[in-house]
Design a protein around this nucleic acid. Structure first.
Lengths: 186, 186
DNA sequence: GCTTGCTATGCAACGAGGTGCATAGCAAGA
DNA sequence: TCTTGCTATGCACCTCGTTGCATAGCAAGC
């Protein structure tokens, strides 16, 4: 299971509370991994029991207190072991692809609205990623700048998200063109 | 849940047994949806109870008998309803992306072998899809051929798979180039 | 006759993930 | 004062998916 490791990576990038992690999983980490706050709290509790993370109570003014988690040595070791172990390339699950093949047995053209909606979502995600890239990685900065692994690797993952969204938009246009050919001649 | 509907679509394309469905889910359907034979048998049994599918015992020579499932009227209705309902664009889960960001806190270059392995898998999948496309959709055939929804929609989904694998290979090359810059200067 | 291997179906148990709900601190505005 | 809303944490329950195991028919080879 990789949720453990996704949380460890996020905590290594920056320690934080379960609540903060949940919000990160709606943004940056959430680009390639999703989790609800329930899963996060549960996993944090388990990892705390296993000594993978340390907890620190933090009093805040104007807000409820929080528990700040950070990665313990055992957590680093566990992450290292996971990084060294091979994983299977993901098994994809595309509901939309099932719908498209299923539409052959219904009215293909009636899917057009749904596909347009998905195209819109991917367009928004792409714009969001591009804005994030400009904000966080926009400046070419002076060359010969020392290599910063965290930054470079976050950037290449973001470029993956951008490539994915561009591919999806292009493909959804292909789908829309195909569906349009089945439009009832009204 | 869309496994129900993926099975219904597959049975509409061609009735078959749980075992046959399981093999389809290792191939064509499996390009965008995975399922083990356990899940398939369980769902078939439930759908039979709900009257979504019909069963027929088929004796075979040289092999054990099988149960052939086909979609019943109630199943068609359920599929139609699902097709008409909006679904949320998929939430992605990329273990490899977690690994890449995590590698910043370990040895980035040690990931190169793993990424190459993934690239190899995607290259093979692409070759497999392209061969399938040539086999099943290769002939331009006479134009003005009547539109065949099932065929056209299967093709557009396959084109999505091809676009996805091409995007992944390109991105993994980007990843490899990035990781190479962290190689220990030995 | 025995083993191997593919076809074909299924149970039991577990873990992961999601939904709904509950609690509580604190600020801001009606 | 009461409600609304964000921050913050957590329990209970249920479903989905995976793993391991079991059974059985039948063919082919040793």
């Amino acid at each position: 299971m990789a949720l453990d490791h996704a949380i460890l990576v996020s905590l290594l990038e920056k320690p934080g509370s379960g609540y903060e992690l949940a919000r990160r999983f709606e943004r940056s980490i959430g680009y390639f991994w999703t989790a609800t706050h329930q899963q996060i709290y549960r996993v944090l509790k388990r990892m705390e029991g296993d000594g993978w993370v340390d907890v620190r109570d933090v009093a805040q003014q104007g807000r409820p207190d929080k528990k700040e988690y950070s990665v313990a040595e055992a957590g680093r070791v566990a992450l290292s072991a996971w990084l060294a172990a091979p994983i299977e390339p993901e098994s994809v699950r595309h509901d939309l692809a099932v719908k498209i093949r299923g539409a052959a047995f219904d009215d293909p053209a009636s899917l057009i609205g749904e596909v347009r909606r998905h195209r819109q979502v991917h367009t928004e995600r792409l714009a969001h990623y591009l804005a994030g890239e400009k904000r966080d990685f926009g400046e070419p900065s002076d060359r010969d700048e020392p290599l910063h692994a965290e930054r470079e690797l976050q950037h290449v993952v973001l470029r993956g998200g951008i490539a994915y969204e561009r591919m999806m938009i292009t493909w959804l246009d292909d789908v829309l063109g195909t569906l349009a050919r089945f439009e009832t001649g009204r």
